[in-house]
Design a binder for these strands. Sequence first.
DNA 1: CGAAACAATGAAAAGGTTTGCAGAATGGCG
DNA 2: CGCCATTCTGCAAACCTTTTCATTGTTTCG
Lengths: 360, 360
Amino acid sequence: MAVTIRDVARESGVSISTVSRALASPEQVAEATRIHVQATAARMGYRPNRNARSLITGRSGSIGLVVPDLENPFFGSVCKGVQARARAAGYTVFVADTDEDPTVESEIARSLIKQVDGVILCSPRTTDDEIRALTTETPLVLANRRLDGVPSIIFDNGGGLVAVMRHLIALGHRRVAYAGGPRASWSNAQRAAAFRVFADEQVHGELELIDLGNFPPYFEGGVQAADLAVASGATAVVGYNDLVALGILDRLRQRGLSAPEDMSVTGFDNVAVSTFVRPNLTTVDLPRQQMGRMSVDALLDLVLRDSQASTNESMPEQAADAASGVLQELAVDLMVRQSTGVPSGPGGRGATHQLLDAGV
Amino acid sequence: MAVTIRDVARESGVSISTVSRALASPEQVAEATRIHVQATAARMGYRPNRNARSLITGRSGSIGLVVPDLENPFFGSVCKGVQARARAAGYTVFVADTDEDPTVESEIARSLIKQVDGVILCSPRTTDDEIRALTTETPLVLANRRLDGVPSIIFDNGGGLVAVMRHLIALGHRRVAYAGGPRASWSNAQRAAAFRVFADEQVHGELELIDLGNFPPYFEGGVQAADLAVASGATAVVGYNDLVALGILDRLRQRGLSAPEDMSVTGFDNVAVSTFVRPNLTTVDLPRQQMGRMSVDALLDLVLRDSQASTNESMPEQAADAASGVLQELAVDLMVRQSTGVPSGPGGRGATHQLLDAGV
DNA sequence: CGAAACAATGAAAAGGTTTGCAGAATGGCG
DNA sequence: CGCCATTCTGCAAACCTTTTCATTGTTTCG
């Protein structure tokens, strides 16, 4: 049998309450007693029963994390960040994998609710309404997705895409294609939108942008997109993510084309493998672990506020605003590597202009 | 406030006990009552408080999983398998990341013990003694490491390495190098041992095996090993894992050598990226998710047995043997791809023999 | 018809902890 | 010297559920 607080109390000759206080709120107990009790507890190897504690405090000391696919290194990174920060704050983490299935997502989240203080939904595939419903049942924060009124941690997808486009334009590209991700993906919507509005808000009259359509966000999707990119006459193709970009690179090579000479290629994510291939992939680095850490911070803010709200009614307004439905956007970095370069059509940059003029 | 069993009891006009039974052990309650109570509970959205339940039953319905690095896709896969199987069995999973630090490993495991029914240690970096100590405190199973007396799920590392060697020998290689992983790695010990004994138990008098030493199990480790491999005069190099193999491939290309013409290269793990590079990597596929699933099965066996042991003393002997300290070895598959081929030294295979004869 | 077995339900204890409240002890100050 | 304030400690309730035991009512069989 495990050693309980009762055993420690008997052994050290004080009451249960004193033991509890000596360990949980040391300032309330005389120094001599405190030291004695703490020593006894340590000697006996006492560890409070978390269930009993949770039962009375109403807090479990753990949080839930729901991700679509643990096998995907992207979520592995986020998960690592979440785990590290939670542990530092004395919380443990339940992890659930939805296998990319939107329907099991909310079901899993609901099954977690009862045993956690709050939930982080990372890249959820379910609907806005469903997420909002969940919000009424538990403290919840969104990672890699934005929803008004729900604390959300997102990457600056638009900024990342703009950085990519500027880079390509600076190199001389005037005909650029976008190989999109899944239609239902929130990240893809962000990136595709930034791609589309780019021509409008910039003053590049001669810039031609081609949307190649939606592809599976894997290597195979890129393979598929590569041929369309070549046929489009683009000199550069922006992949939805690194995997797609790698697929494009591979298919190009297979067709005897080389990057960046015949086609510049970019990705998104900066997964480790993007430096393992030749040419190294120019891509946008996303601070994934930081997203995990910030999600935990936001969630713990929420949890803390909730628990205070019931006892302490005087809360500064701006503090409430600061975290209730707040949006935090993480800056991203363009990593310029080998897969992008000056377009080398016949005659170089001038020829590209000609090509455009000819309406090809 | 959440709805408790008391509310349901009052609402449906029965006692607390009846509600509890109607939901947990329906066969003990009259059909009419059962239906009525279940309906009322469902209507009120009643969910049992897991803490209260755990407090009295002593079981938490969750298990702990400790891994060295969540960002490593290898552990992501195992984790996914664990998560899936646990969920199917009605268990939830705590995940902890030790950041490859052996000292925090047991500390983390201990902090989990109090809130889980059992623990899975995946690729633990700590000592045998420490693991054994943990065994006395909680049901525990080992994934990707073997320890006598502790249920262990491992890959057939030796078999995998033998398959690789046979493949290389069949291609005509007679001088093969091994680029090892970390000295402290259990997997590496297995593979290195298999590599060393290979020459002895096989009858390949002319076979020369070169141990290049230990390298970090990452891309950079492979880069480092590549030059040594070239200098050793080997025609094939076996990497500790895929990342090392990829590093070797990259460094070879950088030096103007090509695989498999100038050097055959193999890996271990079959991570997704091994098919993203050219040449595709010949490697050993490890059923990682299955390792996760089997770990859960083994752990749940253990948990179930423990809880029965206290009540029911009559247990068949062989059943106890079957899972108490049992070792389960998962078969692995050689995936032959593009990075291995016939050695093409000057004059082909014959020349290799000459080379060996010359003592080079 | 009576007794015994059985099915269904309720009362109550138990599980380990936190915490409000009250009592005791100590010290300071008038 | 006496009173009050302060500090420390203990008692007991509360958290929500499961489970044992007892009770009631019903059925079956001798």
